[in-house]
Write a protein that binds this DNA or RNA. Structure first.
Lengths: 350, 350
DNA sequence: GTGTCCTACTAAACCGCTCTAGCGTTTGGG
DNA sequence: CCCAAACGCTAGAGCGGTTTAGTAGGACAC
């Protein structure tokens, strides 16, 4: 005999299939004595529900989907994603829900996967990341009427609930910290300009620069890659009037920038302060260790998982959820600007 | 009406459900004219197969499983896993097979998941990583008679096919390179001693040390974490007779080690050469950039995916597959040992 | 003309589970 | 004491596909 089915259990326990189903799913309709007996037989036969059979009959598929539209080879670079993934896992596996992961090339392909997986009943819901400024995915998901949770808000994501952190407030805390140290020329190596969070950070920097009376506060968009991070840093440091502090939107870029500074003989933090908008082991192990915005990405993933599970259980009832604002972890890469602040004498000071 | 089923298509096209099934799956039993008509109707109705319905009836579930037994929070640290994942994705998505990912705490839990997912028909096969010295997972999978591919060999994985690279040869290439530069005291910060590849690397170092007549060649086991990597490095560098070169089993540890050396005033590569057994962006962006063993982890993932798909299609026919031996990428962290080689004068030389 | 084979298709069983309708028995209220 | 309600359970109809057994009709050989 192959794997046992509820019919086998029913025969063994001397009851009907229906009774077995009730007993195994903890729902009323059987006496406690019968339930116990059925459970014991099921245990003895090492029975497990056949996930496909359960998913048929209109029930849940027991999986949720995460589709990421980025060049496949770049995913490995971002500690952020891996951390998020681990957190999602933790949140989902508590309820024995599986995660279906797919990396695609672009948003069109991503949307196609949303369509397909929904129609195929392959997943019960989706997690949406990398929210764009005008995001077409939102309305597709709304139209498909499939539960979904958006990572990154607030607002601008239609009827879908989101889990978000206050990027604006975080950027302000960085700028205030740098300004307090005496920095007046701050550069910002931003991420992809199409992303909403990139826009929010750029705007926050501009606003606070005006309020604090900074001499310069420029945001340069990049593609998050170490290559562009390094190139932009080189460009900035070669200018006659160079910034005394650079804020990087990802830790990979920050480390790459640190490498460029070292290579160009610009001392950190003596002549240049570096702040990373993302924290990970990476920021802590380089030398000097990077001052970075710490947030618990793992916990974020767990939170997203919980919101999604709630949205699947009771669509329409889940509200947006704000996670704690990332806090600045001061390490060794930031300090007062040198005496020749912003005059660009060529990197030999201190 | 909800989503269309084959019954809807059958009605619309004026044929039976069976005919529709034949037509949609490209199997004989319908005329070309009828097939074309059915396909067109299916297209018009935007029909997609219900994955659960298909998986019932004994067919494939269309997903494969990857279960990783490591502390959840550490996964994010290893670029290796993320790269592997991306490669797996690429290999699987070509055949529209999904990847079910799960991070568990220990091997016992991992085995339980193999059992569960197999009995639940949730996946069609597994990818096994982190092969241990005496690995109990192998026989569990053999007993479950589920297709599986092991990453890391050769040998010692029962009847399961494996995809592997020659760790031994790779380690030899590192040692030869360092010896040729003049190094006689080499330390090796290894990974978890329970892993087979850790053992192979340790043995390779010991063998070549003997053959090349090195003064010292010690392997210290770690847990792959940046913390242990840093601690062990600190310990090594504080010894009176310190090594002139350290080989790290992961890039994260190598970067952490570089940080410690910098902090202790030990110049790299002047007084200490550093080699990482794993390459990733990380190794290239720190300063000095790390000499590292490069292998195409993404391609490795693709290869594993292909082997697994083949094993699912035709169990028992898939052979072990060796991937290209990683090659050393020489960057800036290695050089000739200083004149005070191995005498440990306190890190002020050069 | 009859028997045989093939093609193109239909009808229905089946996969394993869920869920509803229904039925016999016990329990409680008036 | 009788009827109604509650309980504990059974039978069986789906869910959406796949697959097998069976059949009608035409081509062909003898």
């Amino acid at each position: 005999m192959g794997r046992p089915t509820i019919a086998d259990i029913a025969r063994q326990a001397g009851v009907s299939k229906g009774a077995v189903s009730f007993a195994l799913n903890g729902r009323p309709g059987v006496s406690e004595a019968t339930r116990a007996r059925i459970l014991q037989v099921a245990e003895e036969m090492n029975w497990r529900p056949h996930s496909a059979a359960r998913a048929l009959g209109g029930a849940r598929s027991g999986a949720v989907g995460l589709v990421i539209a980025r060049p496949a080879r770049t995913i490995g670079v971002e500690p952020f994603f891996a951390q998020l993934l681990s957190g999602l896992q933790a949140g989902l596996s508590a309820r024995a829900v599986a995660l279906q992961l797919l990396v695609v090339e672009d948003t069109a392909a991503e949307i196609e996967v949303y369509r397909r997986w929904t129609l195929e009943h392959r997943v019960d819901g989706f997690i949406v990341v990398d929210l764009k400024v005008r995001d077409e995915r939102i309305e597709v998901l709304e139209q498909l009427a499939v539960p979904a949770v958006v990572l990154g808000g607030p607002g601008q994501h239609g009827s879908l609930p989101s889990v978000w952190a206050d990027d604006r407030e975080a950027m302000l805390s960085i700028v205030h910290y740098l300004a307090a140290l005496g920095h007046r020329r701050i550069a910002h190596l931003a991420g992809l300009p199409a992303f909403r969070h990139t826009q929010r950070r750029i705007r926050a920097l501009r606003d606070s620069a005006r309020k604090l009376g900074l001499v310069e506060a420029v945001s340069l968009p990049t593609d998050f890659s170490d290559a562009e991070g390094a190139a932009a840093t080189r460009h900035l440091l070669a200018r006659p009037q160079r910034p005394t502090a650079i804020v990087y939107d990802s830790d990979v870029m920050a480390v790459a920038g640190l490498g460029v500074a070292t290579e160009m003989g610009v001392s950190v933090p003596g002549e240049l302060s570096i702040v990373s908008f993302d924290d990970s082991v990476l920021a802590g192990i380089v030398h000097p260790a990077l001052t970075a915005l710490s947030r618990d990405t793992f916990a974020l993933g767990e939170q997203v998982a919980h919101s999604l599970l709630a949205a699947i259980d009771a669509p329409g009832t889940v509200r947006d959820l704000q996670t704690p604002t990332p806090r600045l972890t001061v390490r060794e890469s930031t300090g007062r600007p040198g005496p020749d602040e912003g005059l660009g004498t060529g990197g030999k000071a201190v």
